Computed example of a mutant assay.
Amino acid sequence: MKIELSGKNALVTGASAGIGLAIASGLAQAGARVILVGRDPARLEQAVARIRQASGHHDASGVVADPGTAEGCRAVIAAYPEVDILVNNLGIYGERPFFDIDDTAWEEIFQVNVMSGVRLARHYARGMQERGWGRIQFISSESALNIPAEMVHYGVSKAALQGVSRGLAKVLAGSGVTVNTILPGPTRTEGALAMMADLAARRGVSVEEMESLFLKEHRPSTLLRRFATPEEVAHLCVYAASPQASATTGAALRVEGGIVESIA
């Protein structure tokens, strides 16, 4: 199968590093003109340069904005009013005891993880619908199905994305626009590695040992038995963005290493 996305504009949020950067790179290598959204100008510039070098395409670009705010979403939309592929990857997470998650933390994670995607999809889906083709993805998590006790607010925000995605897929039924969620499991992103390093320091073990301990203690049902790479997640996202995935919509596509205890 050869995925060809030449002539398509793809916008990826949270694209300066990790899964977002891997998705943007994969889309660019398939021929799409990618637009990376990030908050740090220097990191974003480096990410755009990496994609141009890896893909051989020099039309990759970046938008410095924070889609976790309404103002940031407006800035993204003003810079690029129309896209064919929207990947809502922006997200934050972090361990916090439930009784320490105050209203401010709940509001922050909802604005960043949920409303960023809602605002952008609300705008871009209309143009896709009018043109009769489009791909919208919400990067969720296996934590949407297995709410983690160590970060309940994160799991709840990802579960909300499942509802938004399924509902929007119904709104766009028959339009040629597909809407799906992607459910990664533990992935070797910079953020995850930093969290593992912090936990490893507390317990006096190496980062590699901490990854194994984390899976054993918090994700014991894993069948992969290791952290995935961002590229492994991105492969599924690139397929879901392709013309070949035209019959896949309203779905929760899992790339979580078999953690979820379900055959459905």
Rank of each mutant, 00 (worst) to 15 (best):
79 A>K: 02
79 A>D: 03
79 A>T: 11
79 A>R: 03
79 A>E: 02
80 Y>V: 15
80 Y>Q: 15
80 Y>P: 15
80 Y>G: 09
81 P>N: 05
82 E>R: 14
82 E>V: 14
82 E>H: 15
83 V>H: 11
83 V>D: 03
83 V>Y: 15
83 V>A: 04
84 D>L: 04
84 D>E: 11
85 I>A: 07
85 I>H: 12
85 I>W: 06
85 I>G: 12
85 I>L: 06
85 I>K: 07
86 L>R: 02
86 L>I: 03
86 L>F: 01
87 V>T: 06
87 V>N: 07
87 V>Q: 06
87 V>E: 11
88 N>Q: 05
88 N>Y: 05
88 N>K: 03
88 N>L: 04
88 N>V: 05
89 N>F: 01
89 N>R: 01
89 N>W: 01
89 N>V: 01
89 N>K: 01
89 N>C: 05
90 L>M: 09
90 L>D: 08
90 L>H: 11
90 L>I: 12
91 G>R: 04
91 G>Q: 02
91 G>C: 03
91 G>P: 06
91 G>T: 04
91 G>E: 00
91 G>K: 06
91 G>M: 01
92 I>Y: 03
92 I>D: 00
92 I>L: 07
92 I>C: 06
93 Y>G: 08
93 Y>F: 14
93 Y>R: 08
93 Y>N: 09
93 Y>D: 11
93 Y>P: 06
94 G>F: 00
94 G>P: 00
94 G>H: 00
95 E>W: 11
95 E>D: 12
95 E>K: 10
95 E>P: 09
96 R>W: 02
96 R>L: 13
96 R>T: 12
97 P>N: 06
97 P>C: 07
97 P>I: 08
97 P>A: 07
97 P>Q: 06
97 P>L: 08
98 F>I: 07
98 F>G: 03
98 F>R: 02
98 F>L: 14
98 F>C: 06
99 F>G: 10
99 F>T: 10
100 D>H: 05
100 D>K: 02
100 D>V: 01
100 D>W: 02
100 D>N: 07
100 D>Y: 04
101 I>Q: 06
101 I>Y: 05
101 I>E: 12
101 I>S: 02
102 D>E: 10
102 D>I: 03
102 D>S: 05
102 D>Q: 04
102 D>F: 07
102 D>G: 12
103 D>I: 07
103 D>A: 13
103 D>F: 12
104 T>A: 13
104 T>N: 13
104 T>R: 13
104 T>Y: 13
104 T>V: 12
104 T>L: 15
105 A>K: 10
105 A>S: 09
105 A>Q: 08
105 A>H: 11
105 A>Y: 15
106 W>N: 00
106 W>R: 00
106 W>P: 00
107 E>G: 13
107 E>H: 10
108 E>C: 08
108 E>H: 14
108 E>P: 12
108 E>D: 13
109 I>E: 00
109 I>D: 00
109 I>V: 07
109 I>A: 00
110 F>M: 13
110 F>C: 10
110 F>I: 11
110 F>R: 05
110 F>P: 02
110 F>W: 09
